[in-house]
Every structure is written in C-alpha cells, then in structure tokens.
Design a protein around this nucleic acid. Structure first.
Lengths: 178, 178
DNA sequence: TATATTTGTGAGCGATTACTCACTTTACAA
DNA sequence: TTGTAAAGTGAGTAATCGCTCACAAATATA
C-alpha cells in the first residue's frame, strides 16, 4: 500500500463529494490512515495536492480527446464528443465531479483551464466540424453544442444509467446533424 | 439605510462570488459595516441567513414561472422557459449564480430544491408541452430540454451579451420544435 | 417622562483550519 | 555493517471559524 497514492485517492474522493474548500487536510489524513504531516511532505500545500490530482486526471482523459482529434468525419466527431462525458464518468466519476465543482465555484480555475488550453483543440475541432457540415452559422452552432454538452456532463453526475445516457446522446446528436 | 437588508445584500454578493462555505460571517459584517453579532441577532445562524436569501430570491422568480404556467401554446411555453434564465439573470444575476453554485456543490440542497417542488410545476408543464407537440418520446425530449436549459443557465453566468443570448435562445428553440 | 422592547456592539469562546518542525523509522547503497 | 537520504509521525503554531453574551443605544409604548 503506497501512502502517497492513498492520499491522492482519498483526497479526490473527498474533494469531489464535499468540495475542495470544505475538506480539511486533517480529515484526508484520517481517512487515508496517515499522519497529517505526510500530506505536506509529499505536496507543498493543500493546493499542491489538488494540482497533482488534476494533473493525474487530465492525463487519463487525454487519450479520449486524442481519439476525437484524429477523427475526420464531422458527424463522428460530434458523436464522439457527446460520448466523451459518459466515457470519462464511467471510469473517473469522482474526477469529473471535482472538475465540474471547480469550474462552477472558482472563476480563476475556469480561466486557468481555458488558458491552459487543454480543451482548446477540441473546441477548434468542433467548430470545424460544424463548418464542414455547412451550417450557416457554425460558430453559433458550436456554442450551442457546448452549452448542451455542459448540461449533459452535469446531468451524468446524478444519473448514471448507461442505457438512458446513450438514448440521450442519440437524441442530442440528432439535433446537431443535418 | 436598513442594516438587516444590507446584510442580506452583502451576503448574497459574497455567497455568489465566493461560495457559501468560503465566506465568513466576519467578512460579511465588515463589508456591510455592521457588527458581527448583529448577523446572529437577525438570523439564527449562518444557514438561516442563507435561507432568507433563498426565500427572497425565489419569491422574486415566482412571477416569471407563473407566467409560463399560464401559457397554453406549447411552442410559447418552450420559448418562455428558454428565456427564463436570461430574464432572471438580467435582474438577479448574483442570486442565479448562488443557486447554480449550491445546486452544483451541495447534493442535499439539490434534493431540497426538488422536494421543495418549487420547479416541479414547470417540469410538468414542459413535459405536457412536448406531449402536445406529438413528440414520439416526450419525456426524453423534456429531459434533453432541461439538460440544454441547465447548460444555458451556466453559460449566461459568464456571458451576458443580450443580443447573443437571444440568438442562442432562437437556435435552441429551433431544435425543440417540430 | 418613565418603562419596556428592539436594535446594535465588540470582546471573547471553544473548535477547527492549514501548516511547521523536531524527531523517529524505514530503505537502500557503499 | 554503516551512513545517508527518504518516508513518516504527531504535538504544536497562529489564524480564523461560527457563535455567545453582557451590555449600551435607540426606539416604541404607557
């Protein structure tokens, strides 16, 4: 049992369920069965712990995004992107919840995530997909698409039923096809 | 200058921008130019302060919802509901932000808001609207609609441009019409 | 004016916060 | 086996948290 990894695991669980600010380092230490001091040995401070969790999580997400970026058919691009939140949530539910929590609560974090440009290539890809589909206003269509995608991502946090999720994906896809 | 109302106003501002848990009563008192003790004189505790803010805000929202509930044409119902987040945000941006914050962060609050059934009549209204429009799966269509509506509500928090908002409303409406 | 009630203050409470540090234990290379 | 670095501990820190309470000022009632 690796204590450092255990801290990361427990902290992710607690941050996702209670929020970052509302989770004390003492509780993390207790649940990870580790002294509180060890947290600050491995991670400079509480924010450093969060950053390492985020890094790890984003690395796991990247392959899914790369798959979309490699795709050429616009309809398929849209479908895969719609599928993305479900795929992430299936194997990283807590991380997804944390991401949505931070996005919502912390304005600075939202900007960092944009400037960090982790999701920017995907954004461009979607914009081009709607151009290829000859939408009269592809930029607006992409904007509408991301609005729906955000809503769908939030929906999935509370509703995990796979069958229904894919029905929704299909229904949404229909609305963004020509 | 009414001190109680000032506390409510300042607390709403801070809760919306920093989150409930992350806002101390001492800061509220300082910004409202009031002794900290007064907060606990007027409101039993910090949560009581939050509840009064929520009550006040929901009361202001109710007329907008009643307007939708009185409408009979399904297309109009959908349009008015799509317009709802924008209307609320126009004159109660901070309250809307707080609502979205709490919804996201606090599972218990989300359930309370549902059980409280404040938004349930609207939910039924939308379901019936899609039935009237003869959608083959009106329930799923309503689910998809609320997903989009949630995403749109979040979008508006950061993007306040009125013209673009109404373009998006029109674009979304198109996707939910027959 | 006298009395009672409401409104308001600010010092101070115990609990908790993120974090430090002197120290011990473990692991590994020479 | 010995020496050194890394891993791990837990008591302790100042600061802050939500909240109380004894009291003063303002307001209402008589």
């Amino acid at each position: 049992m690796n204590k450092k990894e255990n801290i990361l695991k427990v902290a992710l669980e607690l941050f996702a369920s209670q929020g970052f600010d509302n989770t004390s380092t003492s509780l993390i230490a207790k649940k990870a069965e580790v002294s509180e001091g060890l947290i600050f040995r491995h991670f400079a401070n509480k924010e450093g712990l969060l950053n390492e969790i985020l890094e790890e999580g984003l690395i796991k997400i990247k392959p899914f995004i790369d798959l979309i970026l490699a795709e050429k058919h616009p309809e398929k691009i849209i479908y895969l992107t719609l599928e993305l939140p479900y795929k992430i949530i299936s194997e990283q539910k807590e991380f997804w919840k944390l991401l949505m929590n931070l996005r919502q609560q912390n304005e600075k974090f939202r900007k960092d995530l944009n400037d960090n440009s982790f999701f920017e290539p995907l954004n461009n890809k979607i914009n081009n997909a709607f151009k290829d589909l000859k939408f009269s206003k592809p930029k607006m269509e992409a904007e509408t698409f991301f609005i729906t995608l955000t809503g769908f991502g939030l929906y999935l946090i509370d509703n995990g039923d796979k069958e229904n999720a894919y029905k929704l994906i299909k229904n949404i896809q229909l609305k963004f096809s020509k």
